[in-house]
Structure formats: C-alpha cells, structure tokens
Simulated scan of single mutants.
Amino acid sequence: MEKTWRWFGKNDQIKLEMLRQIGVEGIVSALHDIPNGDVWSMESIDEYKQYIESFGLKWSVVESLAVSEDIKYGGEKRDHLISNYIQSLENLGKAGIKTVCYNFMPVLDWARTDLYFQWKDGSSSLFFDKAKFAYFEIHILERKGADSDYTSEILLAVEELKNRMTEKDNNDLIDSIIVKTQGFVNGNIKEGDQNPVAIFKSLLALYDGIGKDQLRQNMKYFLDKIMPVCEKYDIQMCVHPDDPPFSLLGLPRIVTNEEDIDWLMNAVTNSHNGLTFCTGSLSAGLQNDVPQLARKYAHRTKFVHLRSTNVFDNGDFIEAGHLEGRGKIIDVVRIFEKENPLLPMRIDHGRLLTDDIGKGYNPGYSFLGRMLALGQIDGVMATVQSELQRN
C-alpha cells in the first residue's frame, strides 16, 4: 500500500520535508482555509498540489471535502451546496486528484472525552469515557431525553461525576468534545468561538425529526447527484465509518457496521461509491469483526486508515498500539496487500510521546507517535509482501 500521511497545510508544525525523510510517499490533506460549502477553485487546488509536489511528494487523497450539514439533514440550501460540491470535485478531477475521503456523521465528526489520557510510560492517547460523555449530554447540553439512552450503571457514574466536576472540568470537557476535536476537521465550531455549547445546540436542533431512514435517504440523494462527475473524472468517493460506531446525542449514525455498509454499497452500486476502511473506528464497536469486514469489502475499499482500539466492558474505549487491540492490523494488512495492494494507506492517530508535547499538534496527530506507528506498519507491510512473493 502507498504510505500516506495526514497533513494540515502550510501552518502544520510538521513540515513536508520531515515527512519525505521518514518514508512518506503521499499526502492526505484538504484546503482547510476554504469555508465548508464554498467551491475549491482550480487556482487554489493547483497551487496546493504544486507546493506538495515541490517536496517530492504527491497529493494522494483529499480528506476532507466536507459535506455541509444542510446536505446531511436535507436543508433548503442542499441542492446549491451539492452543486458547489460537484464543481469542487470537477476541479479536483481536472487536477488529477482521484480519491476523496468524506463522512456523513451529523454535527459531531469524531468524539473523545479525554485527549491526553496518560499511559504508565508517560505517553498519552485519545480516550472515550462513556460516563463522561453522558454527563456532557445530561448536565452540560441538558439534552431532553438523554438519560434514557444510558444504563442505570452509567447514570450512577454520571451522578458521581456531577458531585465532583468543577467549572474547569466542565470547560475542559466541552473543549475536548466539541472544540479541539472538531475545529480542524469540519469547521462547525472552532477555537475562539464564543459559547460553543450554544452553537452546538443550534446544530443539533437542525436534526429534529431526522431518523436513520431519512439520513440514509439524504446520503443516497447526495451520492446519486455526484456520481456522474465521479465517473467522468474517475474520482473515488470513500466514506469514513462513524467514529465511534454507535449513536450519540440522540442522532442517527449510518456507517457503523456490516448491515450499514451493505445498505450503502447496494443503495448506490456505482463502483465510485466506496469505503475508507478505518480499523480504528470499526474496532471501537464490539459488533464488528474487523478482518472479516476487510475481506468482505476489499473490492469497495479505496483508502485505508490504520489504528486500533481496546474496548472495555462498560463501553469505554482507548486508542491501542498499532500492533495491538481489536483493529487486528496485521491481519488487515495481509488482506489488503493481497487483494488491493495499490491502496493509499495512512497511519491514523498516534500516541503523544515526550518530545511531541508542546509542539501544537492537533489531537491524535503527533509526529513521533505516528512516526513510530508508521515504522511498525512499514515492517508489517514488508513482511507481508515477502510472504506473498514466496507463495
């Protein structure tokens, strides 16, 4: 597989020359300065592509040409925004950029409650604490009916949290869930916004009355509209599984398991409707056998994210080492190297190591932590390629 790396543009503390030196071949990036819903111009795409290529790298994958909320919930601006999306895809296609990773998660892109969960060795990683998330829903958002979504054990833990959470703790939790994990991804909320909770509540309100079936139909509507331009320029649209792969905030999530992926692939059978196979997102759901899903969907997979999780009995999960956990990455690499060896692959998330601290990296996107993981996976890929050549 092609070794790629998610890079957040010229302001990223990690520089392209650093990536070339550690064996990265392709860049996964986006025009982060263009607001969601606006057209990506040919000039902006060409300038960005040429800048990447000036370092001996290629712009392999767009992650992400974000799908606006109006498209997801079917708002009045939907058709206008889809028209803009099609124009951006056409411009990308003319520039020779053929793979676009996106998601269809309503409001909340990916969710964690702790961005720097400490390991015994002093490193840290992302963590999802179900009780903390429930506390956020019930006592910070004050979402009506939220308590009915949780078990009595979780609700008891929520009450214990209520008795000891300080104002600073609350602000840190808000920052972790709806600011720091979202601002650099989807732009709905960004650092410096006043009263992010109020903004978040207004976004949630847009989905009143939108259930799973309606969200599915909205996704099909979007994909049906964009498939002609994808066919014209051979652009592979690859949806990212929901992270985590279960409902949050009373919102439907529709890319969580085998049944969901089956529905999506059958609803839009065009081969340009594909999958970003994320071992991390899928492994956070106990319903998912990750290698089995990799085998089944190898032919519809257009891009691979490699990371892993450990899931606890109470529903909490933590980012595991890349050679550990439920992601079964070694097995998954064997499957994709055999079935689809030209896929772009990027290391997803990494621990924050000592010399990563204070460098201003986005949560989950450290340099040394991901470099360590890339080295591990590079070794796995070399071993698997050697096995395949012998057989």
Rank of each mutant, 00 (worst) to 15 (best):
H349W: 06
V384Q: 11
D70P: 06
Y207D: 00
D378V: 10
D114I: 11
L92D: 02
I330V: 13
L206Q: 08
D313L: 09
V24Y: 00
K94R: 15
Y221C: 03
C278W: 12
P35Q: 04
G209T: 06
I14C: 11
A382C: 08
H322S: 08
S123C: 01
R351D: 03
D213A: 14
L108W: 03
I82S: 05
E25A: 01
R346Q: 10
R20C: 02
L92S: 06
F200A: 06
V304C: 02
I34V: 14
W40K: 00
E231D: 14
R295P: 01
L92G: 08
A66K: 12
M1F: 14
N91L: 08
N195I: 12
D224Y: 02
K162L: 06
S124C: 01
A30Q: 06
D169G: 05
V333L: 07
K130T: 11
D262T: 07
P35D: 07
L155F: 09
Y51G: 05
I71P: 02
F317S: 01
G379T: 13
L204M: 07
F222N: 08
A373E: 05
L16S: 14
R216D: 03
Y135M: 03
C230L: 10
G285A: 04
D193F: 15
Y233F: 14
Y116L: 13
I22Q: 11
I318E: 00
R6P: 12
V67G: 01
A320S: 08
